[in-house]
Each structure stands twice: as C-alpha cells, then as structure tokens.
Amino acid sequence: MPATSLRQGCSPKPIFCSLLQAGQRFQGIQNSWKLVKDLDYWTVHVEIQDYIPEKGYICGTMEAIDVPRFDYPVITFWEGQIVDNIHYGFRTGCWEATEEDDLRHWSQFSAFRALERVFEIDRARQVALHPLEYVFMRWKERYFVNVPHNCGLTIAGFYYVCMNRITGETQGYYFDPDSLPFQKLQLSPCCLRGQGFTCPWYAFQ
C-alpha cells in the first residue's frame, strides 16, 4: 500500500472509478463462510445502474442463480454507500451494525489492515481514501424485483464490499444478525472479447 494512502489532514475527495460506471457488469459466486456441501454457493450477476461519486452513491441489481428452492433467478435492487470520508465513513451507524461488527467485517479484507489502527482510535475519517488502489463500499438490497417480498428469502442485511479499482476484482461479506455470518461474495468484471471492460451507459428505471 503506498505511503500516500494513509495521509491525514488533506481534503477528502470523491472516489472516481471507471469500473463502477453504469452498465458495468460483474459475475461470480456467493457462498457461506465454510462450505459444507456443493449447495452452499450460488452464481451471482451484478450490474451497476447508477454511480454518482460526488454524492458517494451507487446502485444496481443483483441476480442470484441456483438459489436453493428456486428454479429461476432471484433479482434484487440495491443501493450503495461509497466510503469516501466525505459522505460515508467506515462506521456504518445503521442497519443494526455496531462498531464491533464494522471492524470484524472490514478486517476480513487485506486492503483494510493498514487502516485498522486508525479505525480503532477513531481517526479513520481523517484518512485520504481517494489515492487507494481499493474502493470500500456498503451495498444494501432494497427490494425484490421479480419475486414477492414474502418469498422466504431475506434482504434485511447488507454487504461490506471491497473492490480493486485496477482489476475490478471484488469481495463482499454479508451482515445480518439473523443470518449465517460471513457469507462471502466474490465477483469479477465482465469484459467484451478484445474490447476490455464493458462500460455502456444505462440507467435503472
């Protein structure tokens, strides 16, 4: 991690990342912390629908395939907070997450380890995050798109997310006090053959 990543006292800036533009797609899997059997994971597709770095805002859809008990994909719409130390910091302050929950989940990411000490002494808000190679976010699913709310699935929790802004490799950990802890989300950006990453402009209606 570069030395500039932990500079304090400079003005925070919005976090820009071309891989978060509307239309960018990711694919991967979600699984429980400890796999017990093959059914403990399912395929996930994510599409970014809107990205407003000046507001620390992002949103998109998440499509889960092969979810147990469902013979068709389950799609949700989510909204996200970009941790930029302007609009949002590492402390969640909502969705039933305590500071202990925050530290426990952020610490799962190796990119956060250099920030752990300043988090513990409550100085993380002073750190300039825009020079970092990684983007930290929270994704909160808001509603089901194609199944009723009483379908037996829960979206009460949210994801702690860390994305490498160079490669697009993304990891997330789901937090919900009433769900299995440390369900892991692993995503890679989709790209067009010979054309790099996909970045068409598309807004969720």
Rank of each mutant, 00 (worst) to 15 (best):
Q183I: 00
R25Q: 14
W78I: 00
V127R: 01
V127P: 02
V135T: 06
H45D: 11
I29C: 06
I166S: 09
S110L: 06
D40Q: 03
T167S: 14
I52G: 02
Q126Y: 04
P177E: 02
I155F: 07
P177W: 00
A203F: 15
A97H: 00
L187P: 06
F77C: 08
D38P: 15
S188R: 14
D101W: 00
Q171L: 11
L185S: 01
I48G: 04
Y202G: 06
E169F: 12
I121D: 15
C162K: 03
I29K: 05
R113D: 07
D178A: 10
Y160F: 11
I58D: 05
S188N: 13
D102S: 03
A3G: 09
L115I: 00
C10S: 12
G196C: 01
I155S: 07
E96H: 10
A97P: 05
D84R: 13
T167Q: 03
A114I: 09
S11F: 12
E47T: 14
Y88V: 03
C199T: 15
D178I: 03
A203Y: 15
D178T: 04
Q195S: 14
G28I: 02
F144S: 05
P131E: 03
T198H: 10
A22F: 12
F175V: 00
E79L: 14
R69S: 11
S188W: 11
Y174M: 09
G157D: 05
T198G: 13
K55D: 07
G172N: 04
G89Y: 00
D102K: 00
Y57V: 04
V145F: 09
R69E: 12
S179Q: 07
K55N: 09
L20Q: 10
W95V: 08
Q27V: 13
W78N: 02
F204V: 08
Q186W: 05
K13N: 05
W33D: 15
R113E: 08
F119Q: 05
I58F: 04
W201T: 13
Y134I: 01
S110C: 04
V67E: 00
Y174S: 08
Q81V: 03
A156L: 10
V127W: 03
A97E: 02
Y160K: 01
G9A: 07
G168M: 06
C190E: 13
K13Y: 03
E96W: 06
D178P: 04
I75P: 10
E47G: 07
M1H: 07
E133M: 08
P189C: 01
N164P: 06
Q126H: 07
S18C: 04
Q171W: 11
Q27C: 12
K13H: 06
N150K: 12
G60S: 10
F197Y: 15
G23I: 10
G152H: 02
N146Q: 11
H87C: 07
Y41C: 06
G172D: 04
G157C: 02
S5I: 01
T98S: 10
A111T: 00
I121N: 15
C191N: 09
Q195G: 10
D84G: 08
R91F: 13
I166R: 15
I86V: 08
S32R: 09
Y202N: 12
D176T: 00
C10A: 14
D38R: 15
R113A: 07
G23K: 08
W95R: 08
P177A: 02
R104H: 05
T92L: 09
Q205D: 13
S179L: 06
R117S: 12
F197W: 12
D176G: 02
P148C: 03
L132Q: 05
Y160W: 01
W201S: 12
F144T: 08
